[in-house]
Design a binder for these strands. Structure first.
Lengths: 160, 160
DNA sequence: CCAAACAGTCTCTATTTTAGACCAACGGTC
DNA sequence: GACCGTTGGTCTAAAATAGAGACTGTTTGG
């Protein structure tokens, strides 16, 4: 197996790795890349990778929205449902459980009839919220640029 | 329809809104929450919400990983595949297209045989990368805490 | 001449998500 | 007092989505 090292056998008409090159001729970024690639080879490594873990949670799609919603204060199940109308009960329950399991929020049950339950961020949850808020700011700042890029792309590639 | 205002008719045994209270008696956070809730009622609003847009992209699950991988420099399709072994070609293609459409990365085709294509972050992509890296740092920092919380949760609630 | 590599596309299946019914007890209305 | 909505969920069936793998056509390597 040739195990081709990317970047060496590249088309002659374009510089592909525009990164600093080490004395031996291989790109520095390439080496980092190889390390990263190697790391991701084993399922075990992938599973215990913190980045993956966080990303998989964001991949819940609802998780981030829930945390953002809870930034306004403690919230009951049904209030969350109203705040995020397009989440199904099932997913809301599931996402809340995951978040609780990971210690990002705490669940409090009031033994009344009908039962009342509320969710609030833990300190860990608050710190995650900080990250999310930074992301939200980036999103708002970049929104116009993204919309523009999107319009341009759609115009270039078929408009159907 | 009573349109119950959350927070007023709460169980007597627990303070549910531990947030500053405005002169008129309603929680400040509650008002923000109502605004947020109102915003999310209309599908149109949800669709054009920048936060949603970014979150939906992270919800791709692979998008973030791709951007993080491209932080090491330009990368060809197959190298990305090797770097992220558990992504399917289908999703990789799809995610790359979305990212390109939103102007986070650029795609360059070298008309050789066999064809070569490489992807690299645009300035906008780099700025998104910054956010992602901050998130990655948070993830690594918080990993132990999360693992602990998880272990505790699993111990408390049935260990099956 | 068979195999692999390149960057995808296409189809078929497996997983995930959603929509909606249901629970049991209570408050308000008619 | 029948009827409705409210509480926080769980459960099932249907819809959307993701994944696995075959296929494209050309070129180099063995």
């Amino acid at each position: 197996m040739p195990r081709l090292s990317e970047g060496n056998r590249l088309p002659a008409d374009g510089v592909v790795m525009a990164t600093p090159v080490a004395p031996n001729g291989t790109s520095v970024a390439l080496k980092e890349m190889e390390r990263w690639t190697a790391l991701n080879q084993s399922p075990a490594n992938r599973q215990q990778c913190p980045v993956r873990e966080v990303l998989d949670h964001l991949g819940d799609k609802w998780t981030a929205l829930i945390v953002l919603t809870l930034s306004h204060g403690a919230c009951r199940f049904s209030a969350l449902q109203r705040a995020i109308p397009d989440i199904s009960k099932r997913m809301l329950t599931q996402s809340l459980r995951n978040l609780e399991r990971d210690g990002l929020l705490s669940r409090r049950v009031y033994p009344t009839k009908p039962p009342a339950v509320d969710y609030r961020l833990t300190p860990l949850g608050e710190s995650f919220l900080g990250q999310l808020q930074a992301l939200a700011v980036w999103a708002e700042d970049s929104h116009p640029t993204i919309r523009a890029a999107r319009a341009q792309f759609d115009a270039a590639n078929g408009e159907g």
